[in-house]
Nucleic acid binder design. Structure first.
Lengths: 141, 141
DNA sequence: TAATAAATGCGTTTAATTTTCATTATCTTC
DNA sequence: GAAGATAATGAAAATTAAACGCATTTATTA
């Protein structure tokens, strides 16, 4: 009961919709999902669920630190499991495929820039947008 | 007639709403403005304008390369004049104050990361979020 | 200045997300 | 393990940012 315990720790009640949402994130091939994605996935596997519940659960999971919310250029919010280990994103503008990366050099330079401006850095978001033409750009939007 | 010529160059007709929008960006203390901000500003100075026009004009200006559109965490689109010279942003989470910066090291490393992933980089967005406590954090949200 | 082509404002519409509220399920305690 | 308290759910309505349709107005260009 892995997911059951994860939920318990957050103080949220352990309900079917919440278990299912967590489960989808943990078993999905695509790590970055919108509320709509999850809703369709659940309807597809015969769950009785309302879209409002998905939105609520996603926000609660974000507040509980289970998920991270991203704002890509699309306008819709995208969520992924909070792996605790920080990483940034590189997004293909053609097919929407997302890859993750971490670059220590960039991290260090950011802290340096923040210092230069008298800021204490709390977080950051870095998205590289490009063209993954060298790869199998066969993902559908 | 500075702004007049700027508009001409884009091929767009030189109209009052468009001149006024440009003017607001060029004279505003705050460089980063939402459609709503501009709308209120114009109503405030007695202009007869519709919000739809603002949205249209902002999008046209973006396409013409006069403005850059940002997606901050707020969910609303934020625009700024396109100074042509690329820069990133550091945002204070307390007061919303935004500063700009460019760091060549970060730029280079991004290109490198893109290459490693087989991407051709088209653009990127980097926002550092923090606390500007050492400065006069007296801006109101 | 007249003709034409584009821009405007208003109201309506869409898309994503949030809220309300009555019903239902979970948790806690006995 | 059932009862009561409390929180979660689903459906529908509300909200918010942004876009659109169209009749009217305005800028351009000849």
């Amino acid at each position: 009961m892995e997911e059951h315990d994860e939920l318990k720790k957050t103080g949220l009640k352990v309900t079917l919709p919440r278990l299912k949402v967590l489960n989808i994130f943990e078993s999905s091939k695509e790590k970055h999902l919108t509320a709509e994605d999850i809703y369709k996935e659940m309807l597809g596997s015969g769950e009785e669920v309302g879209l409002a519940t998905i939105y609520r659960v996603l926000t609660q999971f974000e507040q509980a630190g289970l998920l991270i919310r991203h704002h890509f250029e699309s306008g819709k919010a995208v969520f992924e499991l909070n792996e605790k280990s920080h990483h940034d994103h590189i997004v293909c503008l053609q097919c929407g495929h997302v890859e993750e990366f971490v670059n220590e050099g960039i991290e260090k330079l950011q802290t340096q820039v923040a210092n230069e401006h008298g800021f204490t850095i709390i977080e950051h978001s870095l998205y590289i947008y490009g063209d993954c033409t060298k790869k199998d750009c066969e993902y559908k939007k």
